[in-house]
Amino acid sequence: MRRPQGYLIITSPYGADLECDTFTCVHCNTIVPVQPAPAPMPGGFCGMCRSFVCDSCADKECTPFEKQLEAWEAKDRARRSMGFK
């Protein structure tokens, strides 16, 4: 995979170690292992974010994870400002 976003290693006493690249879904932050070609590439590609997305986000509209983080944090700040914990 060109420009992988992570690397995964499983060390086992049986056979060779399993190693593969991973990418992190730009919409939900899920880690997706990528098997070497000719295995099909999992997930999809978001043209808006110009990055890979996982299987479950592949058919959904573009909601960048950074936007979701900001929404969670804003909600938490609002709750705190109203005295809730």
């Binding site: 420009r3 992988p4 976003q5 992570g6 690397y7 995964l8 290693i9 499983i10 060390t11 086992s12 006493p13 049986y14 991973t22 990418f23 992190t24 932050n29 880690i31 994870f65 983080l69 969670w72 944090e73 909600k75 938490d76 705190r80 914990k85």
Partner: peptide, 23 residues
């Protein structure tokens, strides 16, 4: 994973799992 196996995942910059600044 088998109990005998060890797993490691390392993120490249930009591929990290993010913990939000939310209590």
């Amino acid at each position: 994973l088998n109990q005998r196996a060890t797993f490691r995942w390392v993120a490249a910059p930009g591929g990290e799992l993010v913990i939000p600044a939310t209590a």
